[in-house]
Amino acid sequence: MPRCSSCCIERGDVLVTLTAIISYIVNGILMGGLYGLTSAAWSFQCGALKFANFAYGACIMFTMYLTYWPIAMWGWPLPLTIVFVLAFNVVLGWVMRKTVLRPNNRNTQILCTMGLQLIIINLANFFFTSYPRDFGLLEKRFYFTENISIGLTQLFCFVLSGAILIGFQLFLNKTWTGRAIRAVVQNRDVASLMGVKSERILDLAFSISYIMIAIAGIMLMTMFTVDPNFGTTWQSYAFIICISAGIGNLYGAFLSGLIIGVVSSLIKGIVGPFYHDPILYAMFVIILLLRPYGIFNKAENVARTI
């Protein structure tokens, strides 16, 4: 389970009062921004690009390590690390597309990416050891009242997540390249006839989604403690969020991320972290049984692309 180093809500003597609930909700919304961003990136890969990427969580985890290690162990400056992480992710995305995500059969993709996930987790185990790492940043908090506060880092991450997502959607809707991506996703052959180099466009789209992952990973590292199993839980959350929103629906994924963030925060605060995961997964299965195409999608629109 991800352990948040800078936004843990002290259960100590705090009664479950209204202020506490508001606090949970507010924190949940802010957290939800990051959930939304990572889920939207995965949703894009899965729904639009039709890649079932099950190494997703592991990639996020590895990104976090790559952010932590150079800064904490080797004393690299922040800008250099950021560039390094972004470049690494672009290369990783490209390699994945050429190898593991090459076959068109979805099940083979699932299997290969799960294998890749195992590889990444164990490589992390081997190189970084399973000792949890975090930056131990002291969070500046802004206090509305005595019990309700928000962390400034959290707020920044939330705003950045939203901005990236909006920016991405605008890119898709307003630019020629974005238009080409949407066209290729809907009808690859005809897009080719118009002169679009389909494979290159897909590479580009995939790399963009990996950049989004990179940025999300960097942000996560400022707020969470990482260990090699961090990614697995995060990936499960991403699944829940994407399915709830309907795969391929980006804004919906963000909204769903916020909702799940709030729900998660409330469960942790009221019931305690012990049963948090089982409850969340149970909700997930129920959603799958009742409205598998997404809460925001009508039943007829199966996996709409962007």
């Binding site: 020629w176 238009r179 080409a180 949407r182 066209a183 809907q186 009808n187 052959d189 005809v190 897009a191 118009m194 002169g195 679009v196 709409r304 692309t305 962007i306």
Partner: peptide, 17 residues
């Protein structure tokens, strides 16, 4: 073989790629 999910205008624009 149109691009089914986008508008007419965008379909036409794609022709001018």
């Amino acid at each position: 073989q149109l691009f089914p999910e986008i508008s007419v205008r965008e379909n036409l624009l794609m022709g001018a790629w």
